[in-house]
Structures are given as structure tokens and as C-alpha cells.
Design a protein around this nucleic acid. Structure first.
Length: 589
RNA sequence: CCGCCCGUAGCUCAACCGGAUAGAGCACCGGCCUUCUAAGCCGGGGGUUGUGGGUUCGAGUCCCGCCGGGCGGACCA
């Protein structure tokens, strides 16, 4: 049975409370780890908290509490310090016994059980209109680690990718592909600046040509005849607002032309582009160690009538009104700053409409908690989604939206553009190849998600040897090497007598191991997997320090065995932590 | 103008949902390889936590104002 020092100390303090302040037995008792080593292993501010209620000097209260503390073999010392803190120093055995806990639990060390909530994490969900970039990479690394963390914290987790396979953006990709395809047959429709510019579009056009030859060729003039004229070309983004609107109308006209001229063929190109981009993104993510349980199609929401049903339901409840030919959801009634269109005057549903249906669907699937991982630029979207949920009588408490701040990619000290349409951006795949998957995953986790991240490529490359991920992995490799050199049976270390572990570094290392389950708990509670990365850095640092001061493979068998057991426990914990982050634990470096 | 995120060492970032003398890494200076991997370790300098108030035993953390930066505010996604 494992020993939980915090729970034990709380129990002792509660015992003391019984005689010191019987009226406050049920007050919350907080045990913390002091930042400073001289303050002992654990500390409680209980006396400070009671001071007001008892109208007494906190130090006096602390003294009485310490006096009334039930005896315990685990506690070596309880002393009063500062304004009235009670500092506990544990007996050595209370610290070292964590090694047994770690070795007994193995890959389950740190795992929490019994929560058992059903949680969905939806992340990345990028439009399949082009390669994933470093911003998506952050969402992917974050979401994957968060999901792993929540699962490790005792929940049943479903990882979901929402595929935006309906809507205008996909049409734009399809028309982009078609126009490039026409170019291959010398039919030149001026390529719109607001269509997808990337080289991958030309590649898809080549593929279409290869598979279907000239089936979809139409004269450029016929294509242009359908679309309203485009404004004169300008350099870059020098277009006026009116011209921009004109550009969008022109593009819509080209899409209409495609649908009109190609008939079924439109869906062939559309489908080809979709599959191509989706499978590209999927394999990219797989290689990045990011897996999904469900790929949820937006179009399926239309095919099954879910969108229509959701809007009808809102209508039935009186939250929809018609204005200027469009259907509006009265989101202002639920705290949004303005009402939102769900169905445009041309009959097309907005993205918001399918999102309402999607969230209705999510909750109907019976999740206790649904977590949406969004880019920070979507924050204005939260009130309307929650508003719609509220209007549908869904429990908005079940939805948590985590916002990921932007990633700026720095190359040669300059910010690289990340516009998908312009096609000028560094892809996730490129970054992975340049800095490696492990460093990439770890790098993303080195910043809290609500913090903007500068991904400096030159830095990531030039400093690859100094990258914290190697620091942690190196600790693991050292441990493997040492254990291999010893060559004994690792299973035999489980019941080792740990009494020989007495040095300050050894006890500190044990305390660090003891922290791991709490790190998991807090990181899971806060949806903040970066905490695991920071913990691993600390654990590795404690290990490296110990490694340099205390030799493990000594002649004294009892000492050697005890240290080996500690070493094995450290390795175990490193592996468990790295696994949550999707980072490998190499045996040699 | 309104909303959200943020402001901590020269740089990049932490700080256990109010605790004690605010911590790491990088960079800089000085030490440690005939012994388990030097991708490592040990030591050193470096701070009025943007700013002004407030709440209290106690504030980087909570509240208000101001300054500065980022992102949003479409019948776009």
C-alpha cells in the first residue's frame, strides 16, 4: 500500500484540531511543499487560517496544534516558523518508500483512478485545404498531451478531429485545383489571388489530369462567362475593401461555373482534393505521434439532417427570427454581443449552424465533459456557441474551450507568414524534419498554452544540443546504461531495503518522485500539460546532480542495491512522463 | 470604441487555483572527465514581478484605473 504524506499530515492535523478547535474540524486543511528546503518537507498554514476565526495569535494556535498532534512514525519533526506556519520534516523512511510505490506501480505510477469521467477532446480540426503549419502543430501537441494526461488521470478519453468538409473553403480548394488543371491544358483563367496558391494545388491538378485526362476541360472563356469580373490585379494586398468584396464574388462565380460546367465531375475534383489534404494531414499527425479516435465529418451533420434539426429546434423554442431574408439566432439573449446568422438569405447554412449541430451531437453522445481546443483567434466564438447550447437546454458546464495562443515562426529573425491561402508558410512537416519529432513535441510543451509562442527555427536547430528534451532524454539514457552495466535482475529491486538511502540528494530525489502524481493531477485539472514537461526537467536535474555526487555502482551491496532501486524508479517516472508528452525515451544517446 | 490573452533576471519562460528570502534554462564569469555517458555537475553575479491604488495577518497571484504588446469584433472559416 502506498504512503501519501499529504493525506497523512492532514489526518494528523485534523486529529489535533479536535482538541484545539472542535468547531473548525471540517475546515479545509492545505498542505504545501515549501519552496525552501530549510522549511522542511511539507508545511501547513492552518494556524494562519484559523487566526481570525479563533481571534488568537497564529503562532499560539500553531503551538497548540503541534502539541496536540497525534504521534506518528513518519514525522520526524513539526516546528513552528514565520508568522505561524507549521513545518513538517518527514522521517527518511517516509521519503524513500516512494521507490517501492513507483516500482510496484510500474507504468501505472502516477496514474489516477476512480474518476472515470467520459471526456472528449477535440483538437487540430484544421480545414483540409492545405498542409498543416506550426500553429496546427501546437494544437496537435497540446491536444494529444492533454488527452493522454486526462486518460492517465483516470478518465475515458476520446480524441476527435472535426473535418470541415462542407462549406466554402473546400469549394475554394476545389476550384483552385480545377483552375490549375485547366492551365495544364493551356486554358488560362487568371488565378484569383484569394484562391489557394500553394504548390500542392498544382500537384493535385497533375493527379487529376493523370486519372481523368481531359474530362474536365472547358474553355477559359466559358468559365469566365459565368463569373462576375475580377478587379484589376494589384500588388499584394493593395486592394480596397470594395475590390476585396469583388474578388470574393468573382471566386464564388468561378465555383458556380465549376459546379455548373462539371456536374458530377465537380464532386470528383472536390473529393479528390479533400481526400488528398485529409490523408496528408492525417499521416503528418501520425508521424508526429498524434492519433485520433474519431474523424467527424461536418458534412455528415447535413446528410443526417442534424443541422436542420438543430436550427428547427432553436426555431421551435423561439430563438430564431428572420431579417433581410436570413435566419438569425438571438444570441444576445444569452450574453453574446450581437445576434448571429445561422442561415443566409441564399439558403446556405453558416459555419455557426453546423457548429451548433455539432455541439448538440457531442452532448447527445453522452460525454461528461467536452473540451474544444481552439486557436485564440476564435475566442469571440465562445459566447455564441455556449449561448446556442443554453438555448437548446444543454448543460454549458460540460463544455470547456481551451484557447491556444498563436505561434509565430521566426526564420532568420523574421516572422514567417502563415497564410494558408497565400501558400507562404513553413509546414509542420518541415519543422518536424528540421528539429525532430521529440524536440518539436517537447518545445511546444515548454510554454503554457495561453502564452504566445515564438518558434525560432534557427534557435531550435542551432541549440538542438541544449534543447531541454535532450537533457531529459539524456538522464534516461544514462540510467539505462548504468542499469545495463550492473546487469542484474531489475525485478529483484522491487523489495529492496531502502534504509541506505540517506544523502540529501537521494532524499530530495525521492521527494521529487513523490510529486509526480500531484503533477499529473494538477496538470489534468488545469488542462496544462506543460506542467509535466517542467516536472521532467526538474526530475532530470535532480537525477543529474545525484549522479554526479553519489556513485551508484559501489561495492557495498546494500547501498548499491538501494541506489539501483532509486535509479530504476527515476527511470520509470521519466518514461511515464515522456510518454504523456509523446516524446521517446532513448536507451542510448 | 468594446471583448479576450499577456506584461516576472539581458533573452526565453516557471511559480502547486492568496503563503515564508519570486525560481529554472540560455547568455556571461570561475571550477570538475585514469571511476556508472561532460548532451553532465558544482560555484558566482544578476529583480521595486509594467505602473498607481485597493482588499488582509500576507499579493507575481484577487479587484479597479493607467501604460505597453498580441488576438478578435463578417450573411468568412
Amino acid at each position: 500500500m502506498s504512503f501519501d504524506p499529504k493525506a497523512h499530515l492532514i489526518e494528523l492535523l485534523r486529529g489535533a484540531l479536535l482538541s484545539v478547535a472542535p468547531d473548525h474540524c471540517n475546515c479545509e486543511i492545505v498542505i504545501e511543499r515549501p519552496k525552501q528546503a530549510s522549511h522542511g518537507d511539507f508545511a501547513s498554514n492552518l494556524a494562519l487560517q484559523l487566526a481570525r476565526a479563533l481571534k488568537d495569535n497564529p503562532r499560539k494556535i500553531a503551538e497548540r496544534l503541534v502539541q496536540e498532534l497525534p504521534p506518528s512514525d513518519w514525522v520526524r519533526k513539526a516546528e513552528i516558523a514565520g508568522a505561524g506556519f507549521i513545518n513538517f520534516t518527514l522521517a527518511a523512511a517516509a521519503k524513500t518508500c516512494v521507490v517501492h510505490d513507483v516500482l510496484a506501480a510500474g507504468e501505472n505510477y502516477g496514474r489516477r483512478s476512480a474518476l472515470g469521467r467520459k471526456i472528449q477532446v477535440e483538437f487540430v480540426s484544421a480545414n483540409p485545404t492545405g498542409p498543416l503549419h506550426v500553429g496546427h502543430g501546437r494544437g496537435a501537441a497540446y491536444g494529444a498531451s492533454l488527452a493522454a494526461l486526462l486518460a492517465f488521470a483516470g478518465n475515458t478519453v476520446s480524441r476527435e478531429y472535426y473535418v470541415n468538409d462542407a462549406g466554402r473553403q473546400m469549394d475554394i480548394l476545389a476550384v483552385s485545383t480545377w483552375l490549375r488543371y485547366l492551365e495544364l491544358f493551356d486554358e488560362y483563367v487568371p488565378f484569383p489571388p484569394n484562391a489557394y496558391q500553394g504548390a500542392y494545388v498544382r500537384e493535385m491538378a497533375e493527379q487529376v489530369k493523370l486519372a481523368h485526362r481531359d474530362t474536365y476541360v472547358h474553355p477559359a472563356a466559358a468559365v469566365l462567362a459565368v463569373a462576375p469580373a475580377a478587379p484589376a490585379r494589384r500588388d499584394d494586398s493593395a486592394y480596397t475593401k470594395e475590390e476585396k468584396e469583388q474578388l470574393e464574388l468573382h471566386l464564388d462565380g468561378l465555383i458556380a461555373a465549376g459546379k455548373d460546367l462539371l456536374g458530377e465531375g465537380w464532386f470528383t475534383i472536390h473529393g479528390h482534393a479533400l481526400n488528398e489534404q485529409l490523408s496528408d494531414g492525417r499521416s503528418d499527425l501520425e508521424e508526429f505521434g498524434v492519433h485520433f479516435d474519431v474523424w467527424f465529418s461536418e458534412r455528415s451533420l447535413f446528410d443526417t439532417g442534424m443541422v436542420q434539426r438543430a436550427v428547427a429546434e432553436l426555431e421551435k423554442r423561439g430563438h430564431i427570427y428572420v431579417q433581410d431574408g436570413a435566419k438569425w439566432f438571438r444570441s444576445t439573449a444569452f450574453g453574446d454581443e450581437k445576434d448571429r446568422v445561422v442561415q443566409r438569405d441564399n439558403g446556405i447554412y453558416t459555419y455557426f449552424a453546423s457548429d451548433i449541430a455539432y455541439h448538440l451531437n457531442k452532448l447527445e453522445r453522452g460525454f461528461d465533459k467536452v473540451i474544444d481546443v481552439w486557436g485564440a483567434d476564435h475566442h469571440g466564438y465562445i459566447p455564441r456557441v455556449k449561448g446556442a447550447m443554453q438555448a437548446l437546454d444543454l448543460d454549458t458546464q460540460k463544455l470547456d474551450v481551451t484557447l491556444i495562443q498563436f505561434v509565430s515562426l521566426l526564420r532568420n529573425g523574421e516572422k514567417a507568414s502563415m497564410s494558408t491561402r497565400a501558400g507562404e508558410y513553413v509546414t509542420l512537416r518541415q519543422v518536424r524534419e528540421e528539429v525532430g519529432n521529440d524536440a518539436c513535441r517537447f518545445f511546444y510543451m515548454l510554454r503554457k498554452q495561453d502564452q504566445a509562442l515564438d518558434f525560432d527555427l534557427e534557435l531550435a536547430k542551432s541549440q538542438s544540443a541544449d534543447n531541454p528534451v535532450y537533457y531529459v532524454q539524456y538522464a534516461h539514457a544514462r540510467l539505462c546504461s548504468m542499469l545495463a552495466q550492473w546487469g542484474g535482475d531489475l525485478n529483484g529491486l522491487v523489495q529492496t531495503d531502502l534504509a541506505p538511502l540517506t544523502s540529501e540528494r537521494e532524499l530530495a530525489l525521492c521527494a521529487r518522485l513523490r510529486e509526480f502524481p500531484e503533477v499529473i493531477e494538477h496538470a489534468a485539472r488545469d488542462y496544462a500539460p506543460h506542467g509535466v514537461a517542467f516536472y521532467l526537467k526538474d526530475l532530470a536535474a535532480d537525477f543529474h546532480g545525484w549522479y554526479n555526487s553519489d556513485r551508484v555502482l559501489v561495492d557495498d551491496v546494500a547501498l548499491r542495491t538501494a541506489r539501483l532501486a532509486l535509479a530504476l524508479a527515476v527511470r520509470r517516472t521519466l518514461v511515464n512522463g515522456l510518454q504523456l508528452l509523446g516524446v521517446s525515451a532513448p536507451e542510448s544517446m
